[in-house]
């Protein structure tokens, strides 16, 4: 196991991003913003295949319920590629389903950009909480929705707030629950304690849900380590599940 040192945690409470710059202190690659330190290796505390609302059932509209039932029917038939191309092709599970993956992930923060570096298939998602303009989109990648969409972040007190839009409807919220391309996912990431990370997820998709609804996931800090190479398509080729059992 490689122990990778994380930067020291701040004891003085949250300070807004940009304070260093505002004070005229040049940021450097290793000088970190004075925000709560989410960096490290994390793993979901209670693995689950379902994104469960904090209270009550998923508030489907009739249209959302219809698509959900169709997904259940296809699942029962084993027709995964017709509703879940993560299972059939290893396609990126997207936001927020990535957070349900039972294996580990790392969080890196550089220049205000928060990178979630997943062990599973070496996928990443990023939250842009920086003041940096996104680089030029030379080949039009952002013209179509994607699995992790466009994620804009900001710090509110001790929480990193991430708002994701432009999310492809070819992804699911979990193993079955669908969404439309108009969905907005708002997440509040905060440290409950130094070794516990909470992700409060708000799903807002009026086409499929009658109202915005919340789910909460909790992650436990893991020992720092180098992950090994993971290629999901090799599992599919070997007739194994996309997610290791």
């Amino acid at each position: 196991m490689v122990m990778i040192k994380s930067r020291p945690r701040h004891g003085g409470g949250p300070v807004l991003v940009g304070a260093l710059l505002a004070a005229g202190i040049a940021a450097s690659a290793t000088a970190q913003p004075a925000t709560p330190n989410l960096q490290g290796v994390w793993k979901i505390a209670a693995p689950t295949n379902s994104l469960k609302p904090v209270s009550g059932p998923v508030p489907f509209t009739a249209e959302g319920r219809k698509q959900y039932d169709e997904n259940k029917r296809l699942q029962a038939k084993g027709d995964y590629d017709d509703y879940d191309i993560t299972l059939s092709r290893c396609s990126n599970p997207g936001t927020p389903r990535l957070m349900l993956i039972p294996s580990r992930f790392k969080i890196w923060e550089r220049f205000g950009v928060v990178t979630f570096d997943f062990e599973w298939n070496q996928v990443i998602r990023q939250v842009n909480a920086s003041k940096l303009e996104p680089k030029e989109d030379r080949i039009g990648r952002r013209l179509v929705p994607s699995a992790t969409g466009t994620a804009v972040g900001r710090w509110e007190g001790d929480a990193l707030v991430a708002e994701s839009t432009n999310l492809s409807e070819r992804t699911l919220l979990d193993d079955l629950v669908p969404h439309t391309v108009d969905m907005k996912v708002t997440e509040h990431f905060r440290l409950v304690d130094p070794d516990t990370l909470e992700d409060r997820i708000t799903i807002d998709d009026p086409t499929y849900f009658t109202r915005p609804w919340d789910a909460v996931l909790t992650f436990k800090r893991q020992p720092a380590t180098l992950f090994h190479e993971d290629v999901c398509l090799d599992r599919i080729k070997a007739k194994q599940p996309a997610f290791p059992q």
Partner: peptide
Amino acid sequence: RMTYFDEYNCEE
């Protein structure tokens, strides 16, 4: 300024 990457999803 290139820290926020574009998504790569070859498998799709």
